[in-house]
Each structure stands twice: as structure tokens, then as C-alpha cells.
């Protein structure tokens, strides 16, 4: 283990133990926070009872759909905008200010469009995520060195071969960043809208526990969300590192 990792883990452990002690000795009231050990026990109970399996499935399933479709659609739109500079010049201000729009305000409108089901939430997750993928896609395509494209012509590659063998790998680091952001935004979009707006899903369950003073359950679910996000991020990070180690220069 690297020293930095060890120090990080130690700091985290000290923090958790500190919170545990503060809760146990009454420095933090039970109405404010339950001890981390109780959160862990609560989480284990919730997971083993299976009472929330449906919610867990619909939330993470929704996030997966939002993230995957945002990555796919964002890539296609990003590539189109790269190919159509005039259209892009028109849309540039919109894309630049996109994240200043609180996407959640569209929820009522989406309910009208898609009905009282999970779709509006997934759509919010998608809307939240897709623009990060679009901008990173065209940034990646913009930054492909011209000499690589010239090389493709010298090697007499056709359009498809040029795209698959040169353009995509050359733009990969940016596409990767876009996908990473899209996944994170899909998490925020879906769980956030469940929390504020919806009557199902993990976000809603957290809010429900909160409203009912069920602190143990609330904290257990928060921990669950954090664990999943951390795991997904760690996986993406590990994959990215293994690519970057090779492509140190990119």
C-alpha cells in the first residue's frame, strides 16, 4: 500500500472512531446522528431483510439507464456538433450556461409528458448528465492532432477505419472524462429528484426516514448511496489509471 493511501485510510478511520465516540458519550445527541456502528448494523439489516430491494433496484437501474443513454446520446450529439461547426457556434452559449439551469424545475413538465412513473426521474438524470458528455466529446475530437488524421490518409484508411482505429482512441481520454462525469451527474440527478420530488426510490426512502425521525434507517441508506458511489468511482478511477499509465503523454 502506498503511504498516501495508508494515511488517507487512517484519517478516515480516526474520523469514524471520533464520530462513534462522540455519539456514544453523548456529545452528539441521538436525534442528530446515530453512531456509525449503528448505521452499519442498520444497513446490514435493511439489506438482509430485502425490504428495499425494489427501491434499490429501481434507483440504481434508473441511474444506469440515465448514465448509459446520456453517454450514448451525448457522444452522438457531440460528434455531430464537431462535424457541424456553425450549429455548434449557435448552441455554444446554451451549452456553456446549461449547468446554471436547475434541471429539477422541469419535473412537473416531465410528469405531464411521461406520466406518474419512474420515467421523469430517469429523464432528469439523463438531462443532467448528457451535456457533460456532449462537451467532452467535441473537446476530445477538437484536440485530435491533425497530423494523426493526415497519417490516416497517408496509410490510406477509409472513413470507418480512420474513426475506429485513430479518431476514437485519440479522443478516448476526453470521452472517458465525459463518461465519468455523466455517471456522476446521473447519480446526482436521479437520487436528487427522488429525494425532492418523487414517491419512490432510494432518495425518497431517505427523505421518508428523515421525516419520520428514523435516524438509523436514514443514515444507513445515506451510507449505502455513498458506498455505491465510492465503489463506482473507484472502478472508473482504476480503469482510467491503467489507461493513463500507458498513454502518459495524452
Amino acid at each position: 500500500m502506498k503511504l498516501a493511501t495508508a494515511i488517507r485510510l487512517a484519517a478516515l478511520l480516526v474520523l469514524i472512531l471520533g464520530v462513534e465516540a462522540a455519539c456514544r458519550f453523548g456529545l452528539i445527541s441521538r436525534f442528530t446522528m446515530v453512531p456509525p456502528s449503528a448505521m452499519a448494523v442498520g444497513l446490514a439489516e435493511t439489506l438482509s431483510s430485502g425490504e428495499l430491494n425494489g427501491e434499490i433496484g429501481s434507483t440504481f437501474g434508473g441511474i444506469a439507464i440515465a448514465a448509459v443513454s446520456a453517454i450514448g446520446v451525448g457522444f452522438v450529439l457531440g460528434a455531430l456538433l464537431h462535424a457541424l461547426p456553425r450549429v455548434r457556434a449557435c448552441l455554444d452559449p446554451l451549452l456553456a450556461t446549461y449547468y446554471s439551469i436547475p434541471t429539477f424545475v422541469f419535473y412537473p413538465m416531465l410528469l405531464v409528458f411521461f406520466g406518474m412513473n419512474r420515467t421523469p426521474i430517469v429523464v432528469i438524470g439523463f438531462l443532467f448528465a448528457v451535456v457533460a458528455m456532449i462537451t467532452n466529446t467535441f473537446n476530445g475530437l477538437d484536440r485530435i492532432p491533425r497530423v494523426l488524421v493526415k497519417t490516416a490518409r497517408v496509410l490510406r484508411l477509409g472513413g470507418v477505419a480512420t474513426t475506429v482505429r485513430i479518431v476514437l482512441p485519440a479522443a478516448a481520454p476526453h470521452l472517458f472524462t465525459g463518461a465519468k462525469l455523466a455517471i456522476v451527474y446521473a447519480f446526482v440527478g436521479v437520487i436528487g429528484s427522488e429525494f425532492i420530488l418523487s414517491s419512490s426510490g432510494l432518495g425518497y426512502e431517505i427523505a421518508f426516514s428523515f421525516n419520520n425521525f428514523d435516524n438509523t434507517r436514514m443514515y444507513s441508506l445515506i451510507i449505502l448511496v455513498i458506498l455505491v458511489v465510492a465503489l463506482v468511482n473507484a472502478l472508473i478511477f482504476a480503469w482510467e489509471q491503467s489507461l493513463l499509465r500507458r498513454w502518459g503523454r495524452w
Binding site: T151, R153, V154, R156
Partner: peptide
């Protein structure tokens, strides 16, 4: 229009593929 077979080009910029 196209680069004929039998011609090879080396450019000034680094054109190696980092991946």
C-alpha cells in the same frame, strides 16, 4: 485526391499513436 500506394510520408510533428 488520394495518396497513391507506394508513397510514404513522415511529418515534422510526432505522429506516433500513444495508445
Amino acid at each position: 485526391g488520394v495518396v497513391p500506394d507506394g508513397i510514404g510520408v513522415v511529418f515534422q510533428e510526432d505522429a506516433s499513436f500513444p495508445w
